[in-house]
């Protein structure tokens, strides 16, 4: 069952990623990306990490992609003529092969080891919110905070680049 679900979610994810790349229309791309994110959430759920799986949907598929769509739609408007084309079919293998290769590699590895990897007993409460919180705010606190600072810096940097030159407060 788990093997099947893995192949299913994995294939869906690769398909989603592939379609994201080959689509011409930015909006349709974004929709395929959401699809890929949800499939990724399925993989997380299979890995006994329901909290991460839900966060994947909530944050990436939900919040971030809504923002993406909002920006895309604000900038480009309704369906444009000529947007219905896709990337040239000749180029498809080029984008398809790498992710498929990864999928097959991981998949065969799982097939080799059977589903044993999933059935080894996990520590009680593994993947629960408490467990994740303990790791995040305990063992990996420094990395966690550093990443948030990095993100903050990125936001400020984006604002600075986005703003018109003469309006910068320090000039």
């Amino acid at each position: 069952m788990e093997t099947f679900l893995f192949w299913f979610c994995g294939a869906a994810m690769v398909l989603g990623g592939l379609m994201t790349v080959v689509q011409r229309s930015a909006v349709v791309s974004a929709v395929w990306l959401i699809f890929a994110f949800v499939a990724a959430a399925g993989i997380f759920a299979l890995l006994h990490a329901p909290f991460v799986a839900i966060l994947q949907v909530l944050v990436y598929a939900g919040a971030i992609m809504v923002l993406f769509l909002f920006v895309i739609m604000m900038l480009q408007g309704p369906v444009l003529e000529g947007e219905r084309r896709r990337m040239k079919p000749a180029l498809w293998p080029a984008v398809a092969i790498p992710p498929l290769a990864v999928l097959v590699l991981v998949g065969t590895r799982i097939a080799d080891h059977g589903t044993a990897a999933f059935t080894t007993p996990l520590p009680a409460g593994f993947g629960s919110p408490t467990h994740v919180a303990e790791l995040l705010l305990g063992r990996y606190l420094l990395a966690f905070e550093l990443i948030s600072i990095a993100l903050l810096v990125a936001i400020i940097g984006a604002l600075a680049i986005g703003k018109e030159e003469r309006k910068l407060p320090w000039k």
Binding site: V57, L58, A61, G62, L69, M73, P78
Partner: peptide
């Protein structure tokens, strides 16, 4: 065990139908 987050996640997906319809 993450039911509350599930509610939020599903709610956040709810907007896509509307956006897709609109676009």
């Amino acid at each position: 065990n993450v039911g509350l987050l599930y509610v939020l996640a599903v709610a956040s997906l709810g907007t896509y139908g509307v956006v897709m319809a609109g676009w």
